[in-house]
């Protein structure tokens, strides 16, 4: 059971979280102009990193916020945890 550093709530049990998979998979800005191959990569292709891996978590049973972390998939050590900020929250 991981101890996940929520940027808003501090370290919490993995029980409270939902894993959102690999982070920084940007949605193509113009899907209609995106070719099949590129679209398939966006939808389905994910890396399977051994080592430091960027991933998204949702603190679903906590503050309800999505955030990004970088986790070492070998040791499970969290390297960083960052909130996803909106413009109105400042950056």
């Amino acid at each position: 059971m991981l101890l996940i550093p929520c940027p808003h709530c501090g370290p919490r049990s993995e029980l409270e979280f939902h894993c959102g998979g690999e982070a920084h998979i940007a949605r193509p800005t113009n899907p209609a102009a995106t070719g099949d191959q590129r679209w398939a990569e966006y939808l389905f292709y994910r890396s399977n990193t051994k080592g430091v891996h960027a991933e998204r978590w949702l603190h679903v049973h906590g503050c309800g916020r999505w955030f990004n972390v970088r986790r070492d998939t070998i040791s499970d050590r969290f390297v960083t945890a960052d909130q996803i900020r909106s413009a109105e929250e400042g950056s």
Partner: peptide, 12 residues
């Protein structure tokens, strides 16, 4: 008084 505020998240 009779009113209680709970802050659950940055905007909640």
């Amino acid at each position: 008084g009779e009113r209680m505020t709970v802050r659950l998240g940055p905007n909640e």
